[in-house]
C-alpha cells in the first residue's frame, strides 16, 4: 500500500525534502538546545547528578536487584496468566452454555477493569475476605494474572479461529471428540501461530509490573524513585530506568516480529496469521 501513495521522488523533490529536513532538524536542535540550557539553569548537568552512577556500586546492585524483582513478577504472571488463559479460552469455545457464558463474563470483567483496582483487591481486599496474607509480589502477580489471563484467552481464541476449518472437520471426521480435537489438533497449532502475540503481551505485562510501585513492591521504577531521594537525581535515574525498560521491551517486540515473519512462511496454508497479531497489541 505505502508504495503506491506517492511516486519515487525526482531530483527537485529530493532537493526540497533535503532542504525541509535540514530546516526541521534545525528547529528540533534549537528546541533541544533551549531545553538543555533550561536544564543547565536548574543544575541538571552538575557533576553530582551523575557521579553516583560511577561511584556508588550499591546503586547498580540495587538496580540489578530491582530488575530481577520486575522480571520475577513478570515471569510468574506470564506462566499463571497463560494457564488461566487456556482455561478461559477453552471455556469460551465450549459448546456448553454453562461453561461458555461464565467464561465470557469473566473475560469481559477482567478486561474492562483497571489493573490498578485488581492489584488493590489482592493487596487490601483479599486478606480481609479470605484471611490470607499476600506479600506485595503476589498481589501484583495475581492482579497481572487476572487481566492478562483474560487477554491471553482472547489471543488463544483468535489463534484457534485463524486455523483453517478443515483442521476441525478432519479431526472430527476421524472420530476424535471435541475435547480431543481441541487438545491434540487445534491448541498445539494455535499456540505456534500465537507465539508472536503472546510475546507482545509479555511486553504489556512487563510494562504493567511498574504498577507495583503503588503497593510498595520494590521493582525497577520504585527503586529508581527511592534511590533518587537519596541521590537527588530523579531525572537522570528515571532516564536510566526508562532505558532499561525500552531495551528489554524493544528486544521482545523484535523477537515477536521475527517469529511472525517466519511463521507467515511456514504456517499451514489457509491460516490467517495476521489476524492473531491484530487481535492484540492494542491495549496500553
Amino acid at each position: 500500500m505505502t508504495s503506491v501513495l506517492y511516486d519515487v521522488a525526482g531530483p527537485r523533490t529530493r532537493q526540497r525534502i533535503l532542504v525541509w529536513s535540514l530546516v526541521g532538524s534545525a528547529v528540533i536542535v534549537a528546541l533541544l538546545v533551549v531545553a538543555a540550557l533550561r536544564l543547565a539553569d536548574n543544575g541538571q548537568f552538575e557533576a553530582d547528578k551523575y557521579t553516583p552512577f560511577f561511584e556508588e556500586p550499591a546503586l547498580w546492585r540495587g538496580i540489578a536487584r530491582a530488575l530481577r524483582a520486575t522480571l520475577q513478577a513478570a515471569a510468574y504472571a506470564l506462566v499463571l496468566a497463560t494457564i488461566l488463559g487456556v482455561l478461559l479460552a477453552v471455556g469460551r469455545m465450549s459448546h456448553s452454555q454453562w461453561l461458555r457464558l461464565p467464561s465470557i463474563g469473566v473475560i469481559e470483567f477482567f478486561r474492562g477493569v483497571p489493573l490498578l483496582l485488581l492489584i488493590f483487591f489482592f493487596f487490601l481486599g483479599f486478606p480481609l475476605a479470605f484471611g490470607v496474607n499476600l506479600p506485595a509480589l503476589w498481589a501484583l502477580v495475581f492482579g497481572l494474572t487476572l487481566y492478562n489471563g483474560a487477554v491471553i484467552a482472547e489471543i488463544i481464541r483468535a489463534g484457534v479461529h485463524a486455523l483453517p476449518l478443515g483442521q476441525t472437520e478432519a479431526a472430527l471426521a476421524i472420530g476424535l471428540t471435541r475435547g480431543q480435537t481441541m487438545r491434540s489438533v487445534l491448541l498445539p497449532q494455535a499456540f505456534r501461530i500465537m507465539l508472536p502475540a503472546l510475546i507482545s503481551q509479555l511486553v504489556v505485562l512487563l510494562k504493567d509490573t511498574s504498577l507495583g510501585f503503588v503497593i510498595g513492591y520494590v521493582e525497577l521504577l520504585r527503586y529508581g524513585q527511592r534511590a533518587a531521594e537519596q541521590l537527588d537525581n530523579r531525572i537522570q535515574l528515571t532516564v536510566v530506568v526508562a532505558a532499561i525498560y525500552i531495551v528489554i521491551n524493544l528486544s521482545l517486540s523484535r523477537l515477536a516480529t521475527w517469529i511472525e515473519s517466519r511463521q507467515r512462511r511456514v504456517a499451514a496454508p489457509g491460516t490467517h496469521v495476521e489476524e492473531v497479531t491484530e487481535a492484540v497489541g492494542r491495549q496500553g
Partner: peptide, 14 residues
Amino acid sequence: KFDQPLFGLADLEG
C-alpha cells in the same frame, strides 16, 4: 516507612 526522611528512609541497599 521507607520514604520518610529522618524517620524511615530506605538507603540504596533497601
